[in-house]
């Protein structure tokens, strides 16, 4: 067992964890933040995407002990003083069907818009290439990210 200290969505957590505990299981089971999902176990689907020290990672590919000292944002941390523009855009542009990919998808989109506030369609598609959506065929997700970027410009 190892002692870890992490910050998730601005809140500090301190826990004793097994060395083999996956970060995604820590987030879901210990921190009880269940918006981060598991879809493939191999880092392909992106349902477990979180922002880790400013960059997106797939939390099923990291151990909880490796996150010691890290500052993380999960989907539950997106809304501050009302919904984040990307959350509004996903709703306004019908980017959601079953909702399972949505948290990871939105975090990848946020990460893109932070580094490239006015992406073109190809850049958007590339930014979410690591996030699988089985329902939408991606088009309304791409449109939502474009819309969020446009709204920010205005």
């Amino acid at each position: 067992m190892h002692k870890i200290k992490v910050r998730i969505n601005g809140r500090d957590f301190e826990d004793e964890v097994d060395s083999r505990l996956l970060l995604v299981h820590y987030i879901r089971q210990k921190a009880r933040l269940t918006g981060t999902h598991v879809g493939c176990d191999t880092g392909n689907c992106g349902a477990c995407t979180i922002i880790f020290n400013g960059k997106t990672i797939k939390s099923c590919l990291m151990l909880a002990v490796q996150a010691n000292g890290a500052d993380m944002t999960t989907v539950e941390g997106l809304a501050k003083n009302g919904l984040h523009p990307i959350q509004e855009a996903f709703m306004d542009r019908f980017a959601i069907q079953c909702g399972y990919c949505t948290p990871g998808m939105m975090l990848s989109a946020c990460s893109l818009l932070q580094t490239n506030p006015q992406p073109n369609e190809a850049e958007i598609r590339e930014a979410i290439e690591g996030n699988l959506c089985m329902c939408t065929g991606y088009q309304q997700i791409v449109e939502a990210i474009q819309y969020a970027a446009e709204k920010t410009r205005k």
Binding site: R28, R32, L33, T34, G35, T36, H37, V38, T74, V75, E76, L78, A79, L83, Q87, F90, M91, D92, F94, I96, G99, Y100, T102, P103, M106
Partner: peptide
């Protein structure tokens, strides 16, 4: 009319309840 989907608030907030999320 393409009204906003009622389901989506819980999905974007990350507070939907799939089986594995049940406490």
């Amino acid at each position: 009319k393409p009204v906003r989907r009622k389901e989506d608030t819980r999905f974007v907030m990350g507070v939907a309840t799939y089986v594995d999320d049940l406490d």
